[in-house]
Design a protein around this nucleic acid. Structure first.
Length: 219
DNA sequence: CACCAGGCAAGTA
DNA sequence: TACTTGCATGGT
């Protein structure tokens, strides 16, 4: 029995190919990027990441010891730089307090317990927490973002009012529990959202999912 | 000029 | 509980 969500995945994977997410060199870079990309175009985040790298600051110890004020200067291009500097600092405090600034120690923690911990950090919500779990630590959890909800809503697979956890659960109940699959699937949804569900306009022009049969309510 | 981007928390009623 | 608003840069 192949679920509708699996069919959509196959279609996207065949159309776009592998996405190779997350675009980063280290787990820590993924965690930083996950906070920087909140409601922000990824190209702007790349500029901020590039600034940190140029100045040899993109490591747990360096970012832990730099002042919030100085940190904010490097991440200006990512937007919301004051609040994001504060959020990065909040995350680093947590990261060192419980895991000594080591992603391998963090990866050893139980998935749902770690998710609860991450959500308790000010500035880390469900998407940021799940992005860290999946893309930095390779934990099998499905990341839901605005593209995911928009695409599923427009294809009538969820109601507009569906909550984050409901959408996440829909994917995780209907797919094999695989970090590799969840990684690729979410990346493909973002790719589709960027290229076809243009902006917030109601139409997904030339959407490769059209005529996929992905039309009935719910899966 | 307006609108948007891989959210989240704090404030208001 | 359910809306609304602030946060900000850079590209289209």
């Amino acid at each position: 029995m192949t679920s509708k969500l699996e069919m959509i995945y196959k279609k996207l994977r065949a159309y776009f190919g592998a996405q190779h997410w997350w675009p980063a060199q280290t787990s820590f870079e993924v965690m930083v990027g996950a906070i920087l990309t909140q409601n922000t175009n990824w190209t702007n985040v790349e500029k901020a990441i590039s600034n940190l790298k140029k100045n040899r600051l993109l490591g747990p110890d360096k970012l832990y010891h730099i002042s919030q004020k100085k940190l904010s200067k490097y991440i200006v291009p990512a937007g919301y730089y004051n609040i994001k500097a504060k959020r990065l600092k909040g995350f680093l405090g947590f990261f060192f307090k419980y895991y000594q600034g080591r992603s391998d120690k963090m990866a050893a923690q139980d998935k749902s317990e770690l998710r609860r911990q991450l959500l308790s950090v000010n500035g880390i919500g469900p998407e940021t927490a799940d992005s860290i779990l999946l893309y930095a630590l390779d934990k099998p959890i499905f990341v839901v973002d605005s593209y995911t909800k928009r695409i599923l809503s427009r294809h009538r697979l969820i109601l507009d009012s569906a909550t984050y956890e409901e959408v996440q659960s829909l994917f995780m109940r209907n797919l094999p529990c695989s970090a590799k699959l969840f990684n690729e699937y979410h990346a493909l949804l973002v790719r589709l959202g960027k290229e076809f569900c243009l902006k917030r306009s109601p139409r997904c022009q030339f959407c490769p999912l059209e005529s996929s049969g992905a039309r009935s309510p719910y899966v």
